[in-house]
């Protein structure tokens, strides 16, 4: 069985990353262990690719494997640029979660995947969104902290700077996710923008953060309104992420993959 070696990957990656967490103050060792752990997953993907004689992109389990590979890779690049330790370990944790899900649900490996999703765009589109959501979720946490400080203490300037940085990174990923989605949609069903409810809500999210960015650029010293915009934008993001399926417009969406028996 091809997948029986998977437990080895899961164990070695978790072990290496655990070492990285313990030694997180030793810069070189930390990076080495994280990269090695990521390489383990990459090697397993390569192994699958050879054994299956096709890119392992067909099933959900295989896609999760790619997330598990890309998350630490992007986390590392982001770390090298911005030095956010929490972001780095957050991405490692998320990656491990995907590996564990894969281990716990072996039956999902052969699960059906509709033909429209079988595209090379699938992985970048979703991975980039996962990152955008991670950054933006973090930025709204910072916003809540900023609002608390504003009303009960004195607002720390660093808080605003952190919120801004996270929004910039998240917004960059969100834009890329939207644009990748547009390019994919053209390849898959003939138009890059069809006002599908999920697309519509993704655009609203994008516009919400666009307002925040412009407001901050215009009034860098006024924080309260910006923080409220940021907190509100996250509510919209949550609607886009989870809520779309419950709206009256969702019946026409291509992004709801619930299958009728």
């Amino acid at each position: 069985m091809i997948w029986s070696n998977f437990i080895l990957v899961l164990l070695s990656s978790s072990l290496l990353w655990l070492l990285a967490l313990i030694l997180y103050k030793k810069e070189f060792l930390k990076r080495l262990f994280i990269v090695l752990g990521t390489v383990c997953i990459g090697a397993f993907i390569a192994f699958l690719w050879v054994k299956l004689e096709r890119p392992p992109l067909r099933t959900l389990g295989e896609t999760r494997l790619w997330y598990a590979f890309f998350l630490p890779a992007i986390g590392m690049i982001t770390y090298m640029r911005w030095r956010y330790n929490w972001m780095l370990f957050y991405s490692l944790g998320l990656s491990l979660l995907f590996l564990v899900i894969n281990y716990m649900h072996p039956e999902n490996f052969s699960k059906t995947l509709m033909p429209a999703l079988q595209s090379p765009w699938f992985v970048p589109h979703v991975v980039v969104y996962i990152f955008a959501y991670a950054f933006l979720a973090a930025s709204s946490l910072v916003a809540v902290r900023g609002l608390y400080q504003h009303y009960y203490q004195k607002l720390d300037r660093k808080v605003m700077l952190m919120a801004d940085n996270l929004v910039y990174l998240g917004f960059a990923f969100l834009s890329l996710g939207l644009l990748f989605g547009a390019l994919w949609a053209k390849e898959a069903w003939g138009h890059y923008w069809t006002w599908d409810p999920k697309e519509t809500w993704a655009l609203i999210t994008w516009l919400g953060y666009l307002i925040y960015i412009h407001r901050r650029h215009h009034m860098p010293n006024v924080s309260k309104s910006s923080l409220w915009i940021l907190a509100l934008a996250f509510v919209i993001l949550l609607v886009c992420w989870f809520g779309v399926n419950y709206l009256p417009s969702a019946q026409f969406s291509v992004h709801t993959y619930s299958q009728a028996p």
């Binding site: 640029r81 940085n165 910039y168 990174l169 990923f173 644009l179 053209k186 069903w189 138009h191 890059y192």
Partner: peptide
């Protein structure tokens, strides 16, 4: 499905410019 969209290359030009902008944003930050 058969699709003809003569304006597509120009939209794509815009999309690629926005992508460059997004990468710039990621790299430069705030």
């Amino acid at each position: 499905e058969v699709v003809r969209d003569p304006w597509q290359p120009y939209v794509y030009l815009g999309i690629f410019m926005m992508m460059i902008g997004a990468v710039y944003m990621f790299w430069k930050g705030r």
